[in-house]
Amino acid sequence: MFRYATRRLLGALPTLLILLALAFFLIRVAPGGPFDAERALLPEIEANLRAAYHLDEPLYQQFGRYLWGLLQADFGPSFQYRDFSVTELIMTGFPVSLRLGGSAMALALLFGITAGSIAALRQNTRADYAVMSASMTGISIPNFVMAPLLILVFAVYLGWLPAGGLGDGSPRNMVLPVIALALPQIAYISRLTRGSMIEVLRSNFIRTARAQGLPMRKIVLRHALKPALLPVVSYLGPATAAVITGSVVIEQIFGVPGLGRFFVQGALNRDYTLVMGVVVFYGVLIIAFNLLVDLAYAWLDPKVKYS
């Protein structure tokens, strides 16, 4: 298993390098530059800024410099947030996004798997229809509609929860953003679980278990759930990476200082180093989570063996 994981990680390096190169050159191809503003800078001052950030060097040299910095865990300075390095920005934003996204995914797994299983076990009953319509609604209503609605009801009208910000870091501030982030995930996971569970419940080994007279609860928990979760686990890899690296919509609406806003603002401001930093970070997380998913397969499916 360890050798497999090491091999996979080493195999991911070329992927990461391609990702880096693509992001590095694409952001520079985009029209406009980091120092463009309403008032054009004096040529001397702009030249000075470009030199300070090494943007006056040939592209291949800049790329080499960037890779060299990366090897030393240096993502470079941010062009936009000039008092911070990109590493510092990521390290400030990521814990918040992780806490928010982690809670949302935990909530989504708990409710999504439970609701999906119930719907599958009671297929074509009212419970099934209720769960499926709720999840369809969850998928259809975008975050930027759901989040303001939650704020309006729970913060403005009822005054139970804060409308935004981190406050003193208390869980109260996290409730609404976590719910807003979790709702679509609950919807997806419940639909995936339902579909897969229905299929598993129809398989021969479950039929055998039932014929042996095992109670339904035991059949589901001990035999059906694990194989039924395989598609959910496949989904979880990239979904978790996406959720814990922050959602720009949720962060902006709730004023949460996560990583997501850096994605968009970095790109809009042509903050090359910030964009690169976030892309690399996200890329590494995706690779790591995909590996975790594959390792989880081995635990869930006895047919899968890694050596």
Binding site: P148, I151, G159, P162, A163, Q252
Partner: peptide, 18 residues
């Protein structure tokens, strides 16, 4: 000082007394 880029979200925070 709170960053409030989204003006609709800012309005909600104002109405919620924040």
């Amino acid at each position: 000082y709170y960053p409030t880029e989204d003006q609709t979200a800012e309005l909600s925070r104002f109405r919620a007394g924040e």
